[in-house]
Write a protein that binds this DNA or RNA. Structure first.
Lengths: 224, 224
DNA sequence: GGTTCCCGTTAAGAAAATGTCAAGATTATC
DNA sequence: GATAATCTTGACATTTTCTTAACGGGAACC
């Protein structure tokens, strides 16, 4: 089952999408504006995004950039604007396709299949292993030498953001924004507490973390 | 240099493509019908194909299928036909995008970039290397022959300002302003201390810096 | 030869960030 | 609606980083 996020402020259209896509075996999540789209996406990472550029709260290209910061899922942009400049902007921001309204549902479905086919050879690995634990992002499972570990929802989101970008230093702000939302960008307490919990569950020696590393004053880093 | 195969029976259009794409750094190969397209492609495998569906000798979809038999290069289809069925057929045959004529060259170029981006194997990050260390600004990682080095926040900011302008002399004032703020433009002490720390961590012989060079009385310079 | 200026080095105290813990609040689950 | 699980919040000890000041060396200049 493929997770699809549909972002549009037209409730009518959202309903049509939900019906059409569900009937074809997609699991559909919807959002009516850019902010909730980004929040929903980070909470529930989609495998494909259908994004209307005309959103009430922010420019669609901003949403594309926000998603591309951490996700490589294909993004199909919908828009009523036909000018070349609009298309070039959206595509260069990281969108995979640009469909102008009005469009046929069959065409959009075909474009979705093409985008998914192309992204299928998976730029992001489903499983990541270290010498202390193994993370299966698709199955949402973590195993250590001691056995399977239970993670809370927040712990999962944190771990996912870090694991999706191995060796990369993720600033506090990014972590907080992607897990808790833009309003919590200063709550570094949360990070300390939940990172500590993650370490206690995953690291061989939680007092000396080797895979979930602190970079004081900046953020955290996952090292395989 | 990216190899592009353009298939179209319109000589005029082929000429336009050759000029436009060559000017943007693509290496262009052309074919006027399906048979020669397949022959040329197998002899000289392209990294992207622009394919007009209206060919004199065979149906464009047949060409798509022929290419997909062995190549996974992105295929962008051009067509004068707007019906949904045509688009669905071409996309489901393995095409990555479907552009209807008439189209703008800027849009097509943007779609080519998007397709190539998606088919690219590894999104290589921009890194700066010297013979003593390597800086990955995106991941915030520095590696030396001895291994990875940990930098403090101010050390990172300093290094970033310098590395972003290779070979360029950055005055004290600029460094201080960008790292500490406009109120600290005279605190050259800070520079001495933190530059020394950077050198100790990065330079082969910190007493004789070869990459983080002092320009007495003026500022500092990063030399790759 | 001495003075001055600029720079590198060092170390100690101040400041800031982090890890840890536990209790209360919230949410989920049955 | 009760119970369990999870999250938030605040306090405190610890670690890391930054600031600050002092000292010495080297080059330019008188």
């Amino acid at each position: 089952m493929t997770d699809v996020l549909v972002v549009d402020d037209d409730r009518q259209l959202l309903r049509a999408f939900r019906i059409n896509l569900s009937a074809r075996g997609y699991r559909v999540v919807t959002a009516a504006d850019g902010a909730t789209a980004l929040a929903v996406a980070s909470r529930h990472p989609p495998e494909l995004v259908v994004l209307d550029l005309g959103l009430p709260d922010m420019h669609g290209v901003t949403v594309v950039e926000g998603l591309r910061g951490w996700s490589s899922a294909p993004i199909i942009v919908l828009s009523a604007r036909h000018t070349e400049a609009d298309k070039v902007d959206a595509l260069d921001a990281g969108a995979d396709d640009y469909v102008t309204k009005p469009f046929g549902m069959d065409e959009l479905l075909a474009r979705m299949r093409a985008a998914l086919r192309r992204s299928a050879p998976a730029p992001d690995r489903p499983v990541v292993t270290t010498d202390a634990f193994t993370v299966d992002l698709a199955a949402k499972r973590v195993t250590t030498p001691a056995g399977t570990v239970r993670l809370t929802p927040t712990e999962w989101q944190l771990l996912e953001v870090l694991v999706r970008q191995p060796d990369r230093l993720v600033p506090h702000r990014n972590l907080l924004r992607e897990v808790w939302g833009p309003a919590y960008e200063t709550e570094t307490n949360y990070l300390r507490v939940h990172l500590a919990n993650l370490r206690r569950k995953l690291e061989r020696d939680p007092a000396r973390p080797r895979h979930l590393v602190t970079e004081p004053g900046i953020g955290y880093r996952f090292m395989p």
